[in-house]
């Protein structure tokens, strides 16, 4: 068989021979980073809501103590997972769980991978969401309480929808970081894009060509995701125009106020 002699020849050759490996790796990377970001986001929401539960002088002592203990625990979680590299977390969690017999050789490795990415992302998300909650002015939460909403109700109906909108750029950041950083999971043999690229490069020792392909795939992934998130943001902002329904003289009238008509006010 005739082997290629220059860069593009090798690229085409590798793609023809190992295209399916790259495809599988890309699929796995997307699965891990998307699921990990979503679960991490949910962890972050939960942590942020728990950490902002208010206590008053009527709160029983036991409940206050429990809340204190929970706060300490959550702070430790955030500090530990933000303060150590994910590659180290992967090793510790994977081999630790093996030793503790929580998982064995038959446990599907993507599950472990998603667990690691989720719990790591959760620690970052908790802080991002806390920032988002602070960005929503306190008055709206007070107003929610003043019409009888509980902490959960005011969080879910009023504060978090606005907080999440405000932190969408940061959530997008986390997703992009996860697409790239899930590559470190190759140390526990997760068949994501980096791991598959290594296999594709190995046989003919064409590392430059293989990883050039890998780089382009990562770039396409992150670029696409960024655009999609931008679209979602625009969707969340809702319609800028609104309609005035009925007037004193004509109850059927409807005047639509277009976007930006009150911006300068």
């Amino acid at each position: 068989m005739q082997l290629p002699t220059e860069f593009f020849g090798w690229v085409v050759f590798i793609l023809q021979k190992y295209g399916s490996l790259f495809l599988q790796g890309t699929g796995m990377t997307l699965l891990i980073s998307l699921t990990g970001t979503v679960i991490g986001f949910l962890i972050g929401l939960l942590v942020a809501i728990l950490r902002t539960v208010p206590t008053t002088r009527r709160t029983p002592l036991a409940a206050r103590g429990l809340k204190q203990a929970l706060n300490v625990l959550l702070s430790v979680y955030i500090e530990v997972f933000r303060g150590t590299p994910m590659i180290v977390q992967a090793m510790v969690i994977y081999y630790g769980a093996m030793m503790a017999k929580l998982i064995d050789r038959h446990t599907p490795i993507p599950v472990v991978a998603i667990f690691i990415v989720s719990i790591n992302t959760g620690a970052y998300m908790a802080e991002i969401i806390r920032g988002g909650i602070i960005s929503v002015d306190k008055g709206q939460k007070e107003a929610a309480h003043a019409i009888g909403m509980t902490h959960w109700q005011s969080m879910i109906n009023v504060v978090l929808p606005q907080a999440v909108r405000n932190i969408m750029p940061s959530i997008g950041n986390e997703f992009v970081v996860n697409i790239k950083d899930s590559s470190v999971l190759n140390v526990i043999a997760v068949s994501e894009l980096f791991f598959m690229s290594k296999s594709a490069a190995g046989t003919y020792a064409r590392y430059f060509e293989a990883f050039a392909i890998t780089a382009v795939i990562y770039l396409i992934l992150t670029f696409t995701v960024t655009r999609i998130l931008r679209l979602i943001e625009r969707k969340m902002d809702g319609s800028k125009s609104y309609t005035i329904l009925g007037s004193q003289t004509d109850s059927q009238s409807a005047i639509t106020i277009p976007a930006d008509s009150k911006e300068e006010g």
Binding site: D137, G139, Q140, E142, A143, A144, A146, I147, N157, V158, P161, Q162, R165
Partner: peptide, 13 residues
């Protein structure tokens, strides 16, 4: 017992 605020505090969302 309802409340009306100085800064309105409507839910912006």
């Amino acid at each position: 017992v309802g409340m009306v605020f100085q800064s309105f505090n409507l839910f912006n969302n």
